[in-house]
Write a protein that binds this DNA or RNA. Structure first.
Lengths: 332, 332
DNA sequence: TTGAAAGCGCTAACAA
DNA sequence: TTGTTAGCGCTTTCAA
């Protein structure tokens, strides 16, 4: 039979309150008694019941991670950062995929709250007024990743997507490109929108004619969009809203017998591992996904421990990575 | 104040046992009373405390997924299958990465058991006698993925790695190759060992001289190993123990000014998404990772519900996918 | 510094 | 068919 706190108390000849104190490192237990309790615990192979403790204290050491789809190569790195940080802080991690479906997202959030998670790291696409109000009413600490919500009562950690887009465009402009098209992501995803706006503003600032093709954040979408872009705009460079799009676009460019970067330069965003493996290797905006994850958990931990009041918005640095897929227009 | 079962009982003018019955869909509650209780629940916005229920029943609706590293592109698909199946069955999923470190693995297993998970899906590399005994002593349902343990009291789901390797070699032999090298995975990972054995046996059966280079399951290892293989063996074909190795090898082959498949054909294993995106696209053994995940959860659910006694070993079908990276020797 | 005892919010015998 | 009551294994006042 699995030993419980009473068995330990009995064996150590103390009350279970004392055992509980030892368990919780309460310093007011005298050394000798503490020894005795620890020995009893050892001898019985006793492990406290987390569940009973949860009920008594009304909290858990669990936190939840809710993301669109772990299958998208950008997310595993983020998830790993979160898991590592959570593990380090003694939390166990729940995980759930939403496929960007607001209904599923709701579902999972409630399920995790029901499990009494101490906090949630949320990568959401659906932050309308209604959702925000519901989240607020949960009274569960929340940290948002990858989207920047101003004037909202949530902690968040992300990069400056607007600036990342501008950096990309300016990088292409410096290399002499003037016909730069943008493969954009979904309109309901905030990071995609920021990147698109950054692109538009940078193009206008340089007096260049913009061209945007909207799709999803997938490889297939990149393949598909690229065909239309070539037909309708004849670009010499592409800024893709993420790397999967860029890789798909590259595929289509090659299929048409054009070359990267000689005919068309291309830059992506995220810096997934495959950017360095593709032929040619893919220039991109590197997002510190792992660090975003770690930071998110730190913010969450602070909230859970009541260290801070008010919400905090952390913007991490992105970095443009130059690889083979980008050339100057004169280097054909 | 958050309502509890007593509040509901009071409002519905019944005992809390009756409320509990309604909560658990016990059919012996009369329709009218059930209505009253449901109304009270509705009006109070009552949600039962999972934690209290866990303590009372001594079980949870949580299951755990323990894997080496979610960052390895093979695992997210598996994880997704597991999450989807778990979600469908009403389980919430814990996740933990081990980095193939037996100590961390132990740690996470205990942590999850401590959380009273109902069961664990384990992708382990370290199944020695000692670990097996410890796992058995946990009395927690366990399903192993991706490795086949005979005569062990665990459910498992995997593919036939030995045969997968043989299929690959025979496929290359049919195309006229005779100098076929193998980039092997770590010696302590069972799937890697099976693939290697399959390779060796297939080579011997065909009277061909084998050449094995041992490394890790990473891209970098593929790059590194490939150099040595070219120098020491001059292969016309490569069977890599996984796709990352294959992609790394391809990179190195190109770097040396050789061509795939004209100079060297190459086939990998796993069928990660990038296989279809690389240049050339990569032939590989397709492993039904998603289906493995789904099946694992089904087995786990059976165990948890006591449907079955004895352990079950499910082998799913793999499939050889022909892509551009493989040629006949005469098609130079 | 330690112990006694009352919960935490539910489930499940057992009785009625 | 419903209610009474005793736990589940801890934590946490309050008293000693």
């Amino acid at each position: 039979m699995k030993p419980n706190i009473d068995h330990v108390a009995e064996r150590a000849q103390v009350s279970k309150a004392t055992v509980s104190r030892v368990l919780n490192n309460n310093p007011q237990v005298k050394g000798e008694i503490k020894e005795r309790v620890l020995r009893a615990i050892e001898e019985l192979g006793y492990r406290p019941s987390v569940i009973a403790r949860n009920l008594a204290t009304n909290r858990t050491n669990n936190i939840g991670l809710i993301l669109p789809d772990i299958t998208n190569p950008y997310f595993p790195v983020l998830a790993r950062g979160i898991e590592d940080a959570a593990h380090r802080l003694g939390y166990t991690l729940f995980i759930g995929n939403t496929d960007n479906d607001p209904k599923i997202e709701q579902d999972i959030i409630y399920k995790m709250v029901e499990q009494q998670v101490g906090g949630i790291v949320l990568i959401s696409s659906t932050l309308d007024e209604k959702t925000v109000n519901e989240l607020t009413s949960l009274h569960t600490p929340i940290v948002l990743c990858d989207r920047l919500i101003e004037d909202k009562p949530f902690d968040a950690v992300s990069i400056d997507n607007y600036k990342a887009a501008q950096d990309s465009i300016n990088y292409l402009i410096e290399r002499g490109h003037t016909r730069i098209a943008h493969l954009a992501g979904p309109k309901n995803i905030q990071s995609a929108v920021s990147r698109r706006t950054g692109y538009m503003d940078a193009m206008h600032a340089a007096n260049l004619e913009p061209f945007v093709s909207v799709g999803t954040f997938s490889y297939e979408s990149g393949v598909h969009q690229m065909g239309a872009v070539i037909d309708e705009y004849a670009p010499t460079a592409i800024f893709a809203a993420n790397d999967l799009l860029a890789l798909g676009a590259m595929q289509e460019i090659h299929r048409r017998g054009l070359r990267v970067p000689e005919d068309i330069s291309i830059i992506g965003c995220d810096d997934i591992a495959f950017c360095a493996m593709s032929r040619p290797t893919l220039s991109t905006i590197s997002i510190p996904a792992y660090q975003i994850g770690v930071t998110a958990v730190q913010l969450l931990d602070d909230q859970m421990k009541g260290v801070r009041s008010g919400s905090k918005n952390v913007i991490l640095e992105h970095k443009l990575i130059h690889r083979e897929s980008c050339n100057g227009v004169d280097q054909k």
